[in-house]
Design a binder for these strands. Structure first.
Lengths: 118, 118
DNA sequence: CTAATTGTTCTATTTGCGCTAGAATAAGTG
DNA sequence: CACTTATTCTAGCGCAAATAGAACAATTAG
């Protein structure tokens, strides 16, 4: 699995990392039961601090996407499959929004807003 | 139109404001041609700085949702109707995600990620 | 059982962004 | 014209992101 990060982005590094993992799961490139690379490993590979990676992993745990245990690492839960199922729907929505000239960030913010007050 | 803001949220105020406007447009409570309340007015009503409101308005302009001109204020573009059209699709996606136990923020981040690298 | 791996927790420091504040300026309205 | 409204600048404050180092606890591997 290839995690990348853009240090110049206004999006926090830990958020980028978490987003990358979600995307990998949704794309079916990683699956339930798979183990994410160790935080220290990712940190070294991306020239990023360990705490930053762990923050991302902890957020994913809070969402229920990974199980996080000492000595064992971060293991994907069954929710990975759920994300993969949603991917088709998301692709469709993104395609329609793109065709309509809606900015990606605006679409995401709108989804967040609508999902929030339900 | 009723704009609100949560000062305790970790989401920046300007982002909350922009999100609120998008949501109003998507819900069909404001339409193309409608004028948003003046920045100073919103700022006073919400106990927020004018610059913060203007930052939100400028973001919306960059997205193409409003026309922003001195002396005239912020006027909704035709994109408001587009957002309203997308709302049904978003509602559906949100409902499915909710049923699957996906966290709203995670869904929004996933949409953003998928929309980004297309 | 021992050693290595891996996340957890703690303290500390630096940096950038959000937000506020005030003022001057320019464009549009009535 | 007076008035409204966004635009652009400077300045400062506070907080969260990110870095760094260390000690600790749970799990795995040998």
């Amino acid at each position: 699995m290839l995690l990348t990060v853009d240090p110049t982005s206004e999006v926090p590094l830990f958020a980028q990392l978490a987003a990358a993992v979600r995307a990998e799961a949704a794309a079916g490139r990683i699956h339930a039961g798979d183990r994410l690379p160790a935080a220290r490993e990712v940190a070294a590979g991306l020239a990023v601090n360990v705490h930053t990676v762990l923050r991302a992993y902890q957020d994913l745990r809070d969402e229920g996407l990974v199980d996080l245990r000492r000595g064992r690492g971060a293991v994907l839960t069954a929710q990975a499959a759920t994300l993969e199922d949603l991917r088709t729907d998301i692709d469709g929505l993104v395609a329609r929004a793109r065709a309509a000239g809606i900015h990606p960030d605006a679409l995401a913010a709108l989804v967040k807003e609508i999902a929030r007050d339900r």
